[in-house]
Design a protein around this nucleic acid. Structure first.
Lengths: 250, 250
DNA sequence: GCCATCAGGATTATCGATAATCTCTTTGAA
DNA sequence: TTCAAAGAGATTATCGATAATCCTGATGGC
């Protein structure tokens, strides 16, 4: 009886294609354009022509326009009335600028997180960071076992995301949390695109470094020392920028 | 032949209305909705129905949708896929939250402005603040001469805007400048709507207080003391919130 | 030659209509 | 009764077409 319960599923041999992403088009387009801009496939100053994009994505103009408005809100595209959208420059200088904003907000968040954080959760994060910080990755792994390496990088990224998300949540400030998540969109795009392709020894080094930095931050939060938390967070973010500097134009 | 060529100029008694705001509709709608939300005419949790708004503004659905996307980016409206837009809560608690974000960013900006500011410009601002801080407004003005009072309030607001804009520009960080200007949209809406109606003695007091705070900040920038600049800016913003607290629900 | 004006084509902004999805109520069987 | 399923109405998301605006290059008067 329940076999027919499938709601949104096309029910196998259905005749009418139910259109896979109704209501998700804008978001999908935003993500793709964002990635391409950060990767440099779309150059600074380039015009984003609506009809061209509509053809490329196989959709009509409306979702494209809305995606462009969203990108303008994110601050990565400029829209001039009756003249259309152009890609803003995202070179190292801009990444630095955005990082400064992130720095200010992450520090504000981590200060507030002191005293509000869930300590048992924090404790388990600390253990993860310790494990990751002490993990040795051999030259052998680096060259031969790219699958394991890939996995390590992946899990490091996930842990990083989770940690920063938690801090934002613990800040107890929903608006701040929102702003940080908006910035994270940008940073994730940088991270995954700008330097994600080369799995160098340097990257592995950075992962253990990051784990150590995360550890410091987590411990500061645990001890309720908000000044120290902000200080370590600040260092963490500045180190990140310094590291990325290599994979970016200019 | 050319009679139909009429381009942008209505040519006096033209028969065809040339549509006044092509390319400006979205922005206009954003502004109006923003004001209404802050004023409480649109309540928290209320659904913003596209067709309803389209009728009200006398436009089609497209500009409305784009305006809603913009408002989502500003963080004052939530859009759920296939379910539409609802107004986020903006009570005192939320104003506090937003203010914390603003605090972090304004302080970052003012720190960076130290050493980058245009000193002659700064000097002239300082004179304006001094004049405003020492200005006495009599009881008589307060009651009888509402026109003059109005003008004083107006010019105080303009000076405030100008000062904060300049600091953002002096920060030398365009992204930061953008973020601040986005937040300013919100704050201006609060200021002009939430407590703008009552021109009380209290408001006049606040104006001279603000002038004094601005003065402190400007002098700190002038002397290049970034720590002091951040400290005074922080106080300034927190005082502002404290003052607004009266005109807001909850 | 220099400047203002104006077609012509390209592109954006807006519109009105259609398709997809949600919400709520009703129905009928276990 | 309780639950799943179906249907009606409302609303959103998307589409394709039209109107408005911009850009470029040519034209013609001075």
């Amino acid at each position: 009886m329940k076999t027919a319960t499938v709601k949104s599923k096309p029910a196998a041999g259905n005749t009418s294609p139910p259109a896979v992403d109704h209501g998700q088009r804008r978001q999908r387009i935003v993500d793709e354009l964002l990635a391409e801009i950060v990767q440099g496939k779309l150059r600074a100053g380039e015009r984003l022509r609506i009809q061209t994009l509509a053809n490329r994505f196989g959709v009509s103009q409306s979702p494209i326009r809305e995606a462009l408005v969203t990108l303008e809100g994110i601050g990565i595209v400029d829209i001039e009335a009756n003249r259309g959208a152009i890609v803003r420059k995202i070179s190292l200088a801009e990444v630095r600028e955005i990082s400064q904003v992130r720095l200010a907000l992450e520090c504000a968040a981590v200060k507030r997180a002191c005293g509000r954080a869930d300590h048992s959760r924090l404790q388990s994060l600390i253990e993860s960071f310790e494990k990751m910080a002490s993990r040795q990755i051999s030259e052998r792994d680096l060259k031969s076992n790219s699958a394991r390496l890939q996995k390590a990088i992946q899990s490091a990224r996930e842990l990083d995301s989770e940690f920063h998300d938690l801090i934002a949540a613990w800040s107890g400030n929903r608006f701040l949390e929102r702003e940080l998540s908006r910035l994270k969109l940008l940073f994730r795009a940088f991270r995954d695109n700008a330097w994600g392709q080369t799995h160098s020894a340097r990257e592995v080094t950075r992962i253990t470094e990051e784990a150590r930095e995360h550890l410091e931050i987590a411990q500061a939060i645990l001890s309720g020392n908000s000044r120290e938390a902000a200080r370590t967070m600040s260092r963490h973010i500045r180190n990140g920028v310094k590291y990325w500097a290599h994979g970016l134009p200019e």
